[in-house]
Each structure stands twice: as structure tokens, then as C-alpha cells.
Design a protein around this nucleic acid. Sequence first.
DNA 1: GTGAAAGCGCTAACAT
DNA 2: ATGTTAGCGCTTTCAC
Lengths: 368, 368
Amino acid sequence: MTRTKEPPGRGRRPTIVDVAAAAGVSKSLVSLALRGDRGVSEATSARILAAAERLGYRSNTLARSLVQGRTMMLGVLLTDLANPYHTEVVAGVEESADAEGFTVLLAHGQRDRARLARQLDALLRLNVDGVVVVSSWLEPRALADAAGRVPVVMVGRPEEFAPGVDTVANDDRAGAEAAVRHLAELGHERIAHLAGSGRPASRARRRGYQETMRDLGLADHATVREIGDAPHGRERAAGALLGTEPTAVFAVNDLAALAVLDRAYTAGTTGLSVVGYDNTFLAQTVRPRLTSVDQPRSVMGNLAVRLLSERMGGRTEDRHEVLVPRLVVRDSTSPPGPLAERGPQDSSPSTPPEGREGHRPSRGRRTP
Amino acid sequence: MTRTKEPPGRGRRPTIVDVAAAAGVSKSLVSLALRGDRGVSEATSARILAAAERLGYRSNTLARSLVQGRTMMLGVLLTDLANPYHTEVVAGVEESADAEGFTVLLAHGQRDRARLARQLDALLRLNVDGVVVVSSWLEPRALADAAGRVPVVMVGRPEEFAPGVDTVANDDRAGAEAAVRHLAELGHERIAHLAGSGRPASRARRRGYQETMRDLGLADHATVREIGDAPHGRERAAGALLGTEPTAVFAVNDLAALAVLDRAYTAGTTGLSVVGYDNTFLAQTVRPRLTSVDQPRSVMGNLAVRLLSERMGGRTEDRHEVLVPRLVVRDSTSPPGPLAERGPQDSSPSTPPEGREGHRPSRGRRTP
DNA sequence: GTGAAAGCGCTAACAT
DNA sequence: ATGTTAGCGCTTTCAC
């Protein structure tokens, strides 16, 4: 029996049944017409659409998803909203998701494993059709667990590969190597490294630094300081590193690079070269503009969605994509020597202050 | 009849019915036990929980929400993921939402009105219980529309108040005034303004600038350049502004302030004072550290959630909260004169390089 | 071309 | 304390 149980007054939102009543048809027809199923006569279809419009009808995603068993939603779980690296990956995800007709929902877990797990759970309960995890903080266990229910891809370097979870990462080792080689080519020998703590990506960069120093015969000059958890850990470690009197520093990321420049400035040190990592917008915003290793963030986001669709399409073997980073050279690196400090120099607004490229991007792929 | 229609094999996720079958009880009992309803005997409850655990059961939010008529989800719609001002507001929203048991879903609309509207629509179709819009780009029309279905609060200065929509904003006029007065107190007279284009917040800051200049008897020195839409619009406008030879600049936001410093540096200008707005982390990251007007972002986020709960609690009159910003003084402002340039100076890591406060935060409230 | 009926997974009366 | 029954709003056979 198709009827309205109460006048569709303020508060109750119109349902398909209300539209049906208003148009004088059955609710099945409304459902069909609304999704443009041809097989509904022009006339009725028009009548139905008009009624829907008039009532301000909007489909209830919950109800539809419940019956269809899929939501056309992709969940993105991220650790750090404040990190431009992460948000640019998200932009890539959104771009591809849009193209495939998915709606993207973001969940933010902070740097808190428990919270991250809760947010992931919330996404799963919502029955998103796939999840992109932009974080290496989530425990492999939780990740694998989620992958048992829905396609999951993680962007970033995992502590260990979780079965069923695809990954997209950049080659941190190669990025570190490019940074160190750039400095060595400029003539630096005393190249120090300001390292991150613990996370897999940091470790890989550090390893890349050390191996490259060794390969270049500069192993004796290798010096590492690790950023601690304490407040101002970055500045403190940077200060300690400068105490060893390097002529150049490869920093684990752009913020660390800024801390080095900050300490150098404070100490009156001059002519120090610094390379960052991630090539966030900071790198082109601060003075001196930062030489930095760029990861192809939006490509990584695109790729994540592609991997998800492949899984939905039935792929079962795990896939681990590794993209090649490229060095972007700007003003924070120059040959060693006390004269290296730069004075004012024009970079007119009509010539965008972009860096010269070092490496060309390319892609590696491997399937264990 | 409680039975499983097919073996809960790989692929089909276990439902409450599966758990019921496994525990040998009815599905209602499972529902009750799962939500810890006392009124279920210890023994059965334990049996049910065990079965659920064993099957890896997780409730289906879709189904629950459909019947309950609410989702315990809050939607946050934001314009610009890359803007730290926005993300810090979001952090405030998350904090309060967590405390009230809501899950927060973020939707990202870019700076695109159409996309923004689509994302809002997606949130509504999901039946979120409330929406926080962190953006002043969405059309008042769409906003009011949404407010007709669910509580909506917008954070930011609206083009016009949309009926049914609460707002939370900072007093841009007062912030601008604080900035200009600070510069005047330092002895500046030739204080110029690098203005934003169009948006209500920019307009209010510009007005604040002009009125304060007038009040200080400096109207004759008031000079404004507006940032255009062209690429490098910021740098171009900053350059033009410097052409008028001000001794100080009040910039519409931190990025604009950086553009001014950049142009000044390039031109070899020395001793220029610059004040930014928003006090993003950039302000304390770059050299010189930026004097900037701070908005109480997390408080704004908290407040947004409070307004939402009030609406859910039945409030019907609109509410428009206006928070008072405060000036944070750092190194980019000093008395006028060519000698004002700063050399290296210690700010040891043990003394956090925080700014001295100008104004104290406080709160205004108004209900039309 | 259109309508009736069954159900998605869950909760919430209402029985027993 | 436990089971039965009716939906939530929608899609989807399957008749007419």
C-alpha cells in the first residue's frame, strides 16, 4: 500500500514514497525514473521528476547502499592534515576518484595509532568500497585486517608488508642518494645528515645517505644526528649537527632543513648548503629557497585509486609500487666556501622561481 | 526464523543473524548484548560476544543509522586542505566531536563552488547529523538549503547570513586595527596594505585598515594594492606596493606577508616592517619570524560543534559568534629607519621562540 | 510500462 | 530473560 503516513511537514525529509504519492505512481517507478531507467514512459518520468524536484527529494545514500551492497565511496585515512605532503597525495586521490565516480571521505587519525584504528573502523562500518591509508603509523595488523574486508592500499613506506594490502611509495634510498650526490658534485665532502626517528621512510633515507657516502669514498665524513621527540627536537639536533662543522647537510625533510638553516643563521654560520626532502610548498616559499627531493605526490594518489579499482576488479596478488623521486635544485645549495652566501638577486615575478630539475621521474614496479 | 542462508564464506561479511545462529539465540538478543544492554543474562551475553568475536563481526553502520534515523556522524566541508588555518579549525572540531561521541567525516571541495556543493550534497545524503562548513565560498543559497535538513554552522565570514545557518568568525576589522595600531605605535606612518580580493574576510580587513588609518590621522598615507588572480599575483602586487615606498605593510594574510618580504629582499630594501594575518605555522617558521594576527582556530572549531549540538537540542534562532583575534608580535616589525635590519641573534632552543602577546583573547556574541 | 512484494542489516516495540 | 514482528528507504525481481 503506497501512502504517506504523515504530511511531509518540516522535519521529515521526503522519501521515495512521498514522491510516488505526489506523482500518483508506485515507488518502484519512482526509483526507476530517478535513475533514468529507460523503460519508463516519457510522460510519467517527467511527472515523477517534477514531483521530486518540487518536494526537494534527495536519495538516501544509506538506504541505497544497504540494498546495493556498495556505496561508491572511497575512504582516505590520513595521519596528518597539517602535512602538505599528505594533503597533496589526497588531492591526487580525489582527482582519480572523481573520474571514476567515487565520493571521497576523509578520516583524520592524528599521529595516534589508536585513533587511527578507530577512524579506519568507522570507515569500514560505513561500508566504503575501498580505503587509501596515507600513513605509516597504522599497525600492519590493523591494515591486514581491513584488507580482509575491502580493498586497501597504503601510501608510504610500511614497517612490513601487510598481506592483502597494496602499497605506493617513493624510493627513499634513491632520493637520499640524489641529494648526497648533488652535494658531492658541488664539491662538498663534509656532508652531514639530520635524520628522522624510527619511521621506515626516515630509516631508508638514512641508509641511502650512508651507502652513498660510502660509495663516494666519503664514509669518514659521514655524521648523523637524530631528531628526538622532545619539544624543539629539530632545532636541538640541528644545532648539535652544526657543531660538527659540516659544509653541507642532507635533512630528512623540509622542516628539518629549515631548522638547520635557522640554527645556522642564529650561529652566524655562512655558506652552508642544505637539502630537504618532500619539496613541500615551504621549499619555494622561504628564503633561501630550498633544494629538496620531490615525491610525485599526485601521481601517488592517482595510483592508489588505480590499485583499488584493480582489486575491485578481482586482482588478488599484492602489488607494491615504488616511484622514483627527483631532486629539485634551488638556492640553498652551492659549492662550499665562506663566500657562498647570496645577496639580493632578482628573480622577477614573470620568471616563476622554479627549480631546475635533477632526475627525471620514472616508475618502478614490483610484485613479490 | 533465524537461520543462515549460506555458509558465511569469504566475501559475505557476517551479520547479526550469523552471530545469532552461532550463539543459538535470536538476533534481537544479539543486538542487545552487543550494545551492552543489561537485561541479558551474563551467560548468554558472554556466549554471544564470543561468537561475534570469533566470526569477526562488526556492526553495519548503514543499517543501524537507517533504522535509528541518525548517524552520529558530523560532516566537515572544507575549501582548502592545504591551508593550515582551515586544518587547525578542523582539529578543534574533531576534538569536540570526539568528546560528544561523534565521528567526523571530512569532505574537500577545493575552491570550486560546484564541487563544494556536490560534496555538501554527498554529506547530506549520508545523513550526517550536522555539518560544519569551513569555507566562505559556498553560496548562501546552498547553505540555507542544507540548513533546512540538518544543523549547519559555517566557520568564516559569510557573504551574507543564510537563514538557519549559524556562523563562527573572527573580528577581521579588529584584527586589522590591532595590526595597524601596532605599526603606528612603533612610529610608522607610511603604512600600506596588501589586500586580498573580494572575499568578505579580506574586505573586512581592508576596511579595518582604512578606518584605523583615518582614526590615527594617517589617512593621507593609506595605500592599498589588491592581489590579482594572475599567477604570481601576490609577488606582483607586493612589488607594486613597495614602489610606493612604505615603511611598513599590513598584509591580508601570512602568505601575502611573505611575498612582501620576498620582494623587499629582492629589491634590497631594508628595515621594512610587515604584519601578516592568521598566524599560521609559517609565521614562526620563516626568517624573520612574522608578526601576525592570530585567530583562535581551535576554539572556533570547538564552538562550531557546540552550536551544532545546541541546534540538535532544539534551538531555532540563528546565532553568530564573533571571536576576538590577537596580535602576536615577532621579528618582522620594528621601528622605522634603515638601521632596523636584524643580524643573527640567539634564540636558544630552550626558550621557545614564541611571540609576545598584544591583545588578550575574549569573546563577543550576538544574536540578531 | 507499471505495480506488488521481498529483502538489505539492524533496532525497537511488543509478546511470551 | 528471550523471541517475534514490524519497519527504516531503497532496489530489484517478477507478475500483470
